[in-house]
Amino acid sequence: MQTLLDIIGGILLVSGTTFLMLGGLGLVRMPDIFNRIQAGTKATTLGTLLTLAGIGFMHPEWSVKLLLIGLFLLFTNPLSSHVLARSAERSGVDKTPKTRIDAFAEDHGDPS
């Protein structure tokens, strides 16, 4: 029983860190700031949640505190990426030439 839980936990752990690695890869490959925020911070959020779940399977006595860390990340991560994106948009950071539409700049004039 214990080993079965450990193996489920280990598989969750590996899938979580795979998402962490994909987030890092996105951070390296994406062309501009907004896409980097998207690829970087979101993939790592899911990666961390999966890792927390995996460790929860391995150490069930820690699950309340792990749940607390997970909820905390779930509530703070979107806020920090939103604040960063807003600050980048307001200070007129250049976007990749692939960008199709920019409704914000249309409504507010070009900030740069």
């Binding site: 998402f19 994909l22 490959r29 690829a39 993939a43 976007k95 539409i101």
Partner: peptide, 24 residues
């Protein structure tokens, strides 16, 4: 989960098929 997998597929594919924009 679903959208994370979608983004992961974009990041892995060699030609980076993104089509970004800011919508209202």
């Amino acid at each position: 989960v679903v959208s994370n997998v979608r983004i992961a597929r974009i990041v892995i594919s060699p030609d980076l098929p993104i089509n970004p924009g800011i919508v209202k």
